[in-house]
């Protein structure tokens, strides 16, 4: 029964944000985040990722459309809804002169947690994020890694149902980044999460859903598997070795094949794009034969694109190429 289904964690409908009638930051965004989902928010700079997160948190009010969190409308005074959210902004900053203990105590009080609830919790969190030796030092002296760990602790102090982390691995070194990703994986087992990141490999590793934004418009929303399913198939890279004349000759012959869409040579690496109409094994066999006939050695062959990064880039590229066609596809949805 629909009534028994758990409420969506986040649901937006035609969410639009226009700043001072000058900048369209978000355009007609309708998404739903189910309980337990770990949604990766992808998009180039200025795509509207942070604006979306701020609307979900009620820090901004929508120009049009609406945003529900845990089945209720989010607005700037919806403190009870924010009590169930843990948020980390990009490059988190903290009030000056505070120590981690003072800061977490402050955040606990902002959530309305009683002394009995917040004191043991903050002690546990400081230990968990390995800030025990620095717990009495001013936050202003912290390194980016320590700041990130404190931000994680502050987002977990209220035991939230939904975590919204805006670029949590930004500015972290390799070790800290690895630790952060492992933490996300652990938390993902029991909480819903929305992660914004520029780093597609991070999204690939920890998320099970993705939303791709481009210039304020949602161009994809679904599971990560669906996103990967949209990649261009039959895209290969071949590293070649041999006489340059022979390589050039074989590339000319490969280009002439009707099953080959494009064949570009770049520093002895042949980039091949094949049609989807025929089986790739047959075409690849023909290409290998051509290379063999021209005495060209194949060093390596690689299938390009079975990655989130390629799928994402393809989506953005296709969106850019659609031009005015976007309008016509958008019309029935809006209706």
């Amino acid at each position: 029964m629909a009534a028994d289904a758990p409420a969506l964690v986040v649901e937006t409908s035609h969410l639009t944000k226009i700043y001072q009638d000058r900048q369209i930051a978000l355009n007609d965004l309708s998404v739903a985040v189910e309980p337990g989902a770990v949604m990766g928010l992808l998009g180039p700079n200025g795509a509207g990722k942070t604006t979306f997160l701020r609307l979900v948190l009620g820090l901004h009010s929508p120009t049009a459309g609406w945003c529900n969190v845990f089945g209720r409308r989010m607005h700037p005074n919806a403190a009870d809804l924010r009590r169930r959210i843990g948020y980390i902004p990009t490059n988190p900053q903290f009030p000056r002169g505070m120590t981690p203990i003072e800061y977490l105590d402050y955040i606990g009080r902002l959530f309305g947690m009683t002394r009995e609830a917040r004191k043991p919790k903050l002690a546990k969190l400081i230990r968990a994020v390995d800030l025990l030796p620095q717990s009495g030092q001013p936050i202003s002296n912290f390194t980016p890694g320590m700041t990130a760990r404190l931000a994680v602790a502050s987002s977990l102090i209220n035991d939230p149902d939904l975590l919204i982390w805006d670029e949590p691995t930004h500015g972290l070194d390799v070790e800290a980044r690895r630790g952060m990703l492992e933490l996300i994986k652990t938390l993902a087992a029991e909480k819903s999460m929305i992660l914004s990141s520029h780093n597609l490999s991070d999204i690939d590793e920890v998320c099970n859903h993705a939303a791709v934004l481009n210039k304020g418009h949602l161009i994809f929303h679904g599971s990560l598997q669906e996103l990967k399913g949209r990649i261009r198939k039959n895209h290969y890279e071949l590293d070649l070795e041999g006489d340059q004349k022979n390589i050039t000759k074989s590339v000319q012959q490969v280009k002439a094949m009707k099953e080959v869409i494009s064949a570009a040579m770049r520093h002895r690496r042949l980039e091949l794009k094949l049609t989807d109409d025929v089986g790739n094994t047959g075409v690849l066999a023909m290409i290998m034969q051509t290379l063999f006939d021209n005495k060209v050695t194949l060093v390596s062959v690689r299938s390009v694109g079975a990655q989130t990064e390629t799928a994402y880039l393809d989506l953005v590229e296709k969106e850019e190429q659609r031009g005015f066609a976007r309008l016509f596809q958008a019309m029935p949805e809006a209706a």
């Binding site: 701020r54 005074n77 924010r82 959210i85 902004p89 990009t90 902002l110």
Partner: peptide, 18 residues
């Protein structure tokens, strides 16, 4: 406090009025 300091406060369980 405008900016990320305000964000880190107003994104918690406090209303704007409070």
């Amino acid at each position: 406090e405008r900016g990320t300091v305000a964000d880190s406060i107003l994104s918690r369980g406090i209303s704007r009025r409070q």
